Amino acid sequence: MIPPGSTLGILGSGQLGRMLAVAAAQLGYRCHIYAPESGPACDVAAAFTRGAYHDAAALGEFARGCAAVTYEFENIDVAAIDAVAAHAPVAPGRASLETAAHRAKEKRLAEACGGRPAPWRHVTTRAELDAALAGIGTPAILKTATEGYDGKGQVRLKSPDEAEAAWATVGGRECVLEGMVSFTHEFSILLVRGGDSTSVAYPPPHNEHRDGILARSSVPAPETIAAQAEAATALATKLADKLGHVGLLTCEFFATPDGPVFNEMAPRVHNSGHWTIEGAATSQFENHVRAVLGLPLGSTALTGISAEMENLIGDEADAWRALLAENGAHLHLYGKHEARPGRKMGHVTRVRR
């Protein structure tokens, strides 16, 4: 157990790092941000080191000043984790990052743990794409194996005739081809696992997307999701145990007539859990910090009858004055100076009590 007054290092300077730093500060910890460029997290942290994720010397110097280190996103080379781990404990560990950052690896692990992903094929060449399309059929989605998020690095194929254009769109990179799934709802399991292998899960939020970006998460979820939550949570727990995961693990699912279909996982706090700041007894950010620092995990119970988180994307954040005036609305702006289409500028949470 790392005592208050110690420094928690965070790799990444985005809004997830910002909310982690706020949660850590409330528990009496200082946060040191390491990233290639300044970002929202730096506004609320005690220290910031500008450095590349491939700079082992700079990462080592940063880590030596931290009691523990975590990260806010998975698009970091595992070599960076190794460089930090030589000087300070890192959570989640290498296995979690290496698996969740690669779509084929996470799907194989989900299958090994008894989960059911959508029909898929690993694609590394143009010829393999043709073979995958012949096996899965269309419509289908071609996704880069790494670095895809919020709809990026993805292209839909309506017929095999679109293979050449799709392959060019992803730059001929390693991919997975996924068959389309007929589903009624999308949801996520937010599981927090401590270093002592104990874990707690939040009520599963119903996630609604717009243009490939999460628009809204709400709890409690519809009955269709609630009926599948136990099976989905069991899979998330198996995945976390298999990886020796410490911290928050997010697993996204499709609710289908045949049960939950695994989509993907993230070894970190997640946009679909932002509602927990006001909507749960202990936020996902605080519980992640607790797990990483070896503290007891907090309650995940709802603070009200229901909670809803709405993302503020692009110029939607311009409505901040009206949101401040709205009774019961909890506004979070991330301090980003430039609003662009598809860019998450903040969120607002409404809790019904």
Rank of each mutant, 00 (worst) to 15 (best):
E316Y: 12
E264C: 14
T256D: 06
M309H: 08
K238Y: 01
D241F: 10
G304V: 11
N271S: 13
E223L: 08
E223M: 02
Q228G: 11
R268Y: 09
T300P: 00
W320D: 07
E308A: 12
T233Y: 02
T237K: 13
V246K: 03
A234L: 06
T237G: 11
A234G: 10
L295W: 15
A281H: 00
F253S: 03
M309N: 09
E252G: 05
F254P: 03
K242L: 06
A280E: 02
G259N: 03
V292M: 09
K242V: 12
P260A: 02
E252K: 08
G273E: 03
T233I: 05
T300G: 02
L239D: 10
A319Q: 15
T233D: 11
S299V: 05
A240H: 01
T256F: 07
V269I: 14
E278M: 06
H274V: 05
D258I: 01
L235R: 13
G294H: 04
A307S: 12
V219F: 04
E252V: 12
A301G: 14
S306C: 09
K238T: 15
M309C: 10
A227P: 10
V246M: 03
F262Q: 00
P257N: 09
G304P: 10
A255W: 12
V219Y: 06
E278S: 03
R321F: 06
H274E: 11
T300A: 07
V246D: 01
A231M: 00
G259I: 03
L235A: 12
A255M: 10
N263Q: 07
E223Y: 00
S272F: 07
T276D: 01
A317W: 04
Q284K: 14
A317P: 04
A322F: 07
I313A: 05
T282N: 09
A231P: 08
S272C: 11
A229W: 13
H288F: 10
T276V: 04
L302N: 01
L312I: 13
E308Y: 01
Q228C: 12
A221N: 00
P220Q: 15
L293I: 10
A221I: 05
S217L: 10
E310D: 07
E230I: 14
G273F: 05
S299N: 03
A291Y: 09
S306P: 11
L312S: 12
M309S: 11
V289M: 08
M309L: 05
N271M: 12
A236K: 14
N311F: 06
F253K: 02
P260K: 06
A266S: 14
A317R: 08
L297G: 08
A236D: 03
L235E: 13
S306F: 03
E310A: 11
S306R: 13
T233G: 13
E308F: 00
Q228F: 13
A227E: 14
G273C: 05
V246Q: 03
A291C: 11
D258Y: 00
W275T: 00
L293A: 03
N271D: 15
T233L: 01
A307P: 01
D318A: 09
